[in-house]
Write a protein that binds this DNA or RNA. Structure first.
Lengths: 204, 204
DNA sequence: AAGCAATGTTACCACTGTCAACATAGAGGT
DNA sequence: ACCTCTATGTTGACAGTGGTAACATTGCTT
């Protein structure tokens, strides 16, 4: 029987999958290397053959998160291939959608241990790549004459900041908890338009 | 001698102070209730007379963080009492300054355990209060006719999102690690102007 | 077939958060 | 002054954690 073999086959992958599962079901705080290994039917020290420590496991998890994010945003954006303005909007909306639907993972991606992300090249690269989607959208907007001049990376960075800020604050339950019960969908739309106005008139 | 008395006097306060210190010096990950108690010269269980658990201690820490943030931003903003536009800018710049100078604390404030901040009314209230500074600035801008119409809370929320996003991403070393070495000061200025443009023309 | 590197296991360590049982101090009523 | 009650602090335990070292097994490579 295949299940009882000494070597797992692809333990690294399995650990990551289980980790993601436990992350979403039990939260980051109670993410435990031992529990993950247990679930994988493997001893608690086996994980150390694939990750130098827990932080590395988490970083790898974040890496997959960025890949997912990029794939998701790209897919959503591509549905509006003709309209750079709507592409730009969808970029942000997709980002926030992803954050809200994958809250714990999103928090890991930008989480506490994110400070030393440079230590994990793969994770860092994945993050950069996902950023590239936004840059591309902006560049298309500029090419179409819908976005004013400016270094696209910097414009993208500002746009990213808006959307990332909204996502973060939304996850904080800060949106719904504001008295007045702000509608998040409308909020995103409004913010995007606001930003779009700013972009149209360029920086100066 | 006062130091050796059985009762500490104001242990709760002392624990928080030491916690903040250890947080900034050793990072959030290695923040330990026992280490804090040890440093306070008190037994490892003493902390439980003042906080139901570690999470509550961290929440209290976050609370002080928000208070500091509010005080800092208010102080900076008030230097530009005459000019609502500059006030608005300074609001954001101060926010980011605070985040960069108190990185670990800032991360705790919006950290992993932030999701259930509603469980800690004091912390939540402090967060709301700090948000109020920005709302006030926007309202003054509107009163001066420099910011278009719109529900001030929502405008403030967008502005907050931008600035919070920038701060978060900056902490991620995402700014400096972008090839091209974006200058963060300029970035903030540009972003603020961008947003200001958007605000001037109102939402639609 | 032999051997070697990759992968798992067991046993241990120091440490953590948390709790229950006990000790002490100090405030307030008598 | 005393006595009691409650707030605060201590000790000792427990289960669970991340991490390491020594040992076991596997399967690729030659």
């Amino acid at each position: 029987m295949i299940e009882e073999r000494y070597h797992h086959g692809d333990l690294r992958q399995a650990l990551l999958a289980i980790a993601k599962q436990q992350l979403t079901s039990h939260g980051f705080e109670s993410l435990s290397l031992r529990a993950i290994s247990r679930e994988a039917g493997v001893s608690h020290a086996a994980a150390y053959r694939h990750f130098p420590n827990k932080e590395a496991l988490v970083a790898a998890l974040a890496c997959t998160g960025f890949e997912q994010l990029q794939a998701f945003v790209e897919a959503e954006v591509m549905q509006y291939g003709a309209d750079p303005r709507e592409q730009f909007f969808q970029c942000g909306i997709a980002y926030i959608k992803f954050a809200l639907h994958n809250a714990p993972l999103f928090r890991v991606m930008f989480g506490v241990s994110g400070a030393d992300r440079l230590q994990y090249p793969a994770t860092h690269a994945a993050a950069q790549a996902s950023f590239g989607v936004l840059v591309g959208t902006i560049q298309r907007g500029q090419a179409a004459g819908l976005i004013g001049a400016g270094e696209p990376r910097q414009l993208a960075f500002t746009a990213w900041a808006v959307v990332h800020g909204l996502a973060t604050l939304a996850l904080q339950d800060q949106i719904t908890s504001q008295q007045g019960a702000i509608d998040s969908e409308r909020l995103v739309r409004n913010s995007a338009k606001l930003l779009w106005n700013g972009l149209k008139y360029g920086q100066a």
